[in-house]
């Protein structure tokens, strides 16, 4: 495909381009909204998982077990199944089970346990000695979380955010099955169902660029906050 051919194709397919722009927007909405809500719930959940561990700051074996089981259930359901299984919940929350807003519900619920585990892992990297030092200084548990654990784990948490957002880009493609729209949906409808390889290639290229951007931004931020 020569350069001229691309230009001609571009001029002849304004409708398709509008579609690609609007579906990129839908993808961004789905990924970042579910990512954001996912972190709002997932970070405290990850913190709680970490603190309730044996010898943790707020050791509680039963709480840890319950949270662990819930998170594992969330993690073990394949996303495509979660998407369908959650239709009643989605309908209850959004009022409809079709559309971008509807897709955000299962994406968020899928993201929460994923984020919780990643945050738990990031907190695990914080040396136990720092918590001990803070305790010796007379820090209360909430102060330890706010002033020691979270700031020290920040590089790991940003890294977790990057991984989550990239994963959500992939998951959002499946949201097409509930009419969620987005680039993945366009790719499947045009590329797979209509055998239009060009459109599929374009969506793939846009998705690759999107993921690269998210990853580069994430890496940059980690570098900025990591003083270890």
């Amino acid at each position: 495909m020569s350069f001229n051919a691309v230009v001609t194709w571009w001029a002849e397919n304004t409708r398709l381009i509008e579609l690609l722009v609007s579906s990129l927007w839908e993808t961004l909405i789905m990924v970042f909204t579910s990512g954001f809500i996912g972190f709002v719930v997932g970070i405290p959940l990850g913190v709680l998982l970490h603190l309730s561990k044996k010898n943790g700051l707020l050791e509680s074996t039963s709480l840890n077990k319950i949270l662990g089981v819930v998170v594992n259930i969330g993690r073990s359901i394949p996303f495509i199944i979660l998407l369908v299984a959650l239709i009643p919940v989605t309908r209850f929350i959004v009022g409809s089970s079709i559309g971008t807003a509807a897709a955000i519900v299962p994406l968020t619920i899928g993201a929460i346990p994923f984020i919780a585990r990643l945050v738990e892992g990031a907190l695990l990297e914080v040396p136990a000695g720092l918590v001990e030092a803070a305790q010796a200084m007379g820090a209360k548990p909430l102060q330890i979380i706010k002033k020691v654990l979270l700031p020290e784990a920040l590089p790991g948490i940003i890294n977790a955010a990057t991984i989550t957002l990239v994963t959500l880009v992939g998951y959002s493609a499946m949201a097409g099955t509930v009419g969620g729209g987005g680039l993945g949906d366009v790719g499947i409808r045009y590329g797979y169902q209509r055998f239009d390889a060009t459109v599929m290639m374009i969506t793939i290229v846009i998705l690759v660029i999107l993921v690269q951007l998210i990853q580069s931004l994430g890496d940059y931020l980690v570098k900025r906050v990591d003083h270890r």
């Binding site: 000695g129 720092l130 001990e132 803070a134 200084m137 007379g138 700031p151 906050v225």
Partner: peptide, 27 residues
């Protein structure tokens, strides 16, 4: 009761100034 440790246990995310300031912030 102040305490110091073998492996120092300074917060890597805080500058020298802010590390020393931490107990005061807590109080």
């Amino acid at each position: 009761i102040g305490m110091i440790f073998q492996h120092f246990n300074l917060l890597s995310s805080r500058t020298v100034f802010n590390n020393v300031a931490l107990p005061l912030e807590l109080a």
